[in-house]
């Protein structure tokens, strides 16, 4: 028996493998669903809700929802993209995101989603919350002003690095990333080569002495919207 199933994305029929999530199937078909906490090497987490799609007219996170035969998924609709943009805007007003001098600018997934979803200014008032910076480690620093609590560092450290360096503490507006250490970041067994460092989508966890290496105009999202790599597969999928 074949484990291939069919469902529709925005009215177009797509083939998927039983057991895949909607996001995995869409990626293979060359259809990009916006996302922040999802990462291809990490287990689905379903926390940021940017990848929300309508499955048979009900909202579901595309990164956690498995495909099933005949389901009708809507993703690229004005309503969903407005909801996605509003999530991105909430993240922008909750943290302190000064793109102008951030080392991650141009390679930042939050910023790139703002570009792709057409954010010019957030609809919500800026909060200007106070957050700390921990630069105690010789090779790494963490700036909580830029943290969007996606949990990629927490999960990467556990799932990919075999460590347990990061963990969430607090609830609601007080939630933040903390370290498995009695002192500060320098008291952990984190290493500059950890996947937890490179998987941060924003400029919250950065390697020291590596800033501004790529000139403006040549950075990852300067001329290509986020998701272009996935969408370029679409042509290949059609040809095959």
């Amino acid at each position: 028996m074949s484990d291939k199933i069919k469902f529709t994305m925005d009215g177009v029929e797509i083939e998927a493998t039983q057991g895949q999530t909607i996001m995995q199937a869409a990626d293979e078909a060359g259809i990009y669903i916006p996302r922040l906490c999802a990462h291809k090497d990490l287990l689905p987490f379903g926390s940021c809700r940017v990848c929300t799609v309508m499955v048979n007219d009900r909202p579901q996170a595309a990164c956690t929802q498995p495909v099933s035969p005949g389901m009708a998924v809507d993703s690229e609709t004005p309503e969903l993209n407005d909801i996605r943009r509003s999530i991105v805007e909430m993240l922008f007003v909750e943290g302190n995101h000064y793109c102008a001098f951030c080392e991650k600018s141009g390679n930042c997934e939050l910023q790139a989603l703002g570009y792709r979803l057409g954010m010019l200014a957030p609809r919500y008032p800026y909060m200007f919350n106070k957050h700390d910076v921990d630069a105690s480690h010789p090779d790494i620093y963490i700036d909580h002003n830029r943290c969007i609590l996606c949990g990629r560092c927490v999960r990467s450290s556990k799932e990919l690095d075999g460590k347990n360096v990061f963990q969430f503490v607090g609830r609601g507006i007080h939630k933040r990333v903390a370290f498995n250490s009695d002192t500060d970041l320098s008291g952990t067994d984190v290493s500059v080569t950890d996947r937890a460092i490179e998987n941060c989508p924003v400029g919250a966890i950065l390697k020291k002495r590596s800033a501004y290496a790529v000139p403006i105009g040549k950075r990852k999202y300067d001329s290509q919207p986020i998701g272009s790599d996935i969408e370029s597969r679409k042509a290949a999928v059609k040809q095959s």
Partner: peptide, 19 residues
Amino acid sequence: ISVGECAIMGGIPAMRNNI
């Protein structure tokens, strides 16, 4: 029209906002 990051979100001067 708000032109630039300072008009839109306060920019560098707004770094004093949580002090």
